[in-house]
Design a protein around this nucleic acid. Structure first.
Lengths: 155, 155
DNA sequence: ACACTCTAGTTGACATGTCACATACTTGGC
DNA sequence: GCCAAGTATGTGACATGTCAACTAGAGTGT
């Protein structure tokens, strides 16, 4: 067993900082979203992705892949959102197994009303606190790590 | 209602990047931790914080405040960890309401065995992918945002 | 047409988090 | 010493995620 390479001072500060940022930011955004729009972050993400899709419709597996969610997670989520009338489910015409998720009118109204407030919340608690250089640094660093993690998951 | 200040290109890339990083990194670390040490991230955090405490003992409320968890969350978590023998609960001698959480011998062995592997995992999937400058940028940016969020929560 | 294998989704059981509420113990002021 | 408030936890109900198992339809080769 090799010697453990513990985190040095900077690394530790970055790691703990990231963890805390992640914990607090998630909580704050979730609270704002729930208070402003009665949506969870998961709801928002699904609606938002569905909204960017042509016709507001997409195969469940495709949406799951796009969002990097497991099909199971998305299936559960969609089931809940279906009950609330935010989305609809149709059988795929070209594949009997397939499930096409469709953004309902209410779903579209909901996401269009929620988006401005959510962006405002993201700005207030995160983006607007950073300098342009920090924003770019975050984007670059995220791209690097995400690329690695995507590969790691496909193994 | 003012015009919505949508995210510009850099901001959007940073925000989406962060979200994806957060999703994938959490999942990867959780999988490694579960496979290597049969612990959840929550378990690890509690054990780790408890381990850094003198005598491996601390009041529930104090630990919750230190970790920025809600007392309720920590109470549930401790209940589960208690059943697995990782921690013990004692009544506070100076406050009848108080609950002192104590790291058990098994808990200490567990965290000491898990720590090296977890650090290795954090390095492999995150820290080692970044340049020293990026590590520092992340630390600085996190400090700024965390400071803001801590204030926001206390309102 | 069949048999075999793969793929798309769904589901159920179980681990976690959150929120609201119930409880018991402390404290400060009479 | 007693009572109104405030504080420290514990709990229950409910929303989400994960993993594994199950069902059903699609594809391939013979």
């Amino acid at each position: 067993m090799d010697e453990t390479r513990w985190l040095n001072s900077d690394e530790d500060r970055a790691w703990r900082g990231y963890r805390r940022l992640s914990l607090l930011l998630g909580r704050q955004l979730a609270r704002d979203l729930a208070a402003d729009s009665q949506l969870s972050e998961a709801d928002y993400d699904v609606l938002s992705n569905l909204g960017e899709t042509p016709g507001g419709r997409i195969r469940l597996t495709d949406l799951a892949a796009h969002m990097r969610w497991s099909p199971s997670r998305l299936s559960h989520q969609v089931a809940r959102m279906r009950q609330r009338g935010l989305v609809t489910r149709e059988t795929s015409p070209d594949d009997g197994r397939g499930s096409v998720i469709v953004l309902s009118d209410e779903g579209r109204r909901t996401i269009e009303a929620a988006a401005p407030r959510h962006v405002e919340s993201v700005r207030r608690h995160f983006i607007d606190l950073l300098t342009p250089a920090q924003v770019q640094a975050l984007a670059a660093l995220s791209d690097t790590v995400v690329e690695h993690l995507v590969k790691a998951e496909s193994e």
